[in-house]
Amino acid sequence: MSHSPVATYFLNIKNSLVSSMEGMAVTMSWLFRKPYTVQYPYAPVEPNKRLGGPETLPERYRGFLEVDIDICTACLACERACPIECIRIDVEKRVQAHDPEQKEQRMLVRFDIDMAKCMFCGLCSEPCPTGAIRHTGHFEAPVTSTEHLYMRFVDPAKPRLPYKVKKGEEPVTKPKGQIAQALYVDRKWNQGPIDFPEIPKAPVEPPPA
């Protein structure tokens, strides 16, 4: 439909005013709604829960590492397997205080995993004889500093005896993901700096001649 030039002139004025007002009504209506943006990590978003929880992820999904230290044999297989050396295990021979025989035993002094370094390749969990170290379905851990991702599975003040595999007996482990849930998820994301206790450094190997 074509209008005369004069009619077009006034139609243009009318259309510009009406359409501007319509546009302003639309933009104004957005001021009365909640923003879609979520202020992560201030707002509880819990993407894992939204997906249905860690159990709904595939069995071999490689999320955060967890170590069930009760069934760790301190065989150091995972430490050797790690290509980027983010796992650090110290084993020392110590005498137990309550041991009547005063025999020296292997003690697990340190089991640290730097999850900030970990590349989730899964090479550590494959050689583990008891399944103590394993990937979980957890992947969400906002922190203010990477040192909060330095995970310590053995208290250095309390060295512990490694697990001994007995024949015909399966190691009893906690449900997969339970330890990771407490370590990574159920903690405050904006916690203060970590106070790492002093640990005697392992002797540095002399460089090959």
Binding site: M24, A25, M28, S29, R33, K34
Partner: peptide, 26 residues
């Protein structure tokens, strides 16, 4: 104008992707 604003709010709430109500209050 206020009527049009009200209409725009109602029209947008019919769309499924705009279900703001499920979001936590923050």
């Amino acid at each position: 104008y206020i009527k049009r604003v009200h209409y725009a709010i109602l029209a947008a709430h019919d769309q499924a992707w705009m279900s703001f109500k499920v979001l936590p209050k923050f």
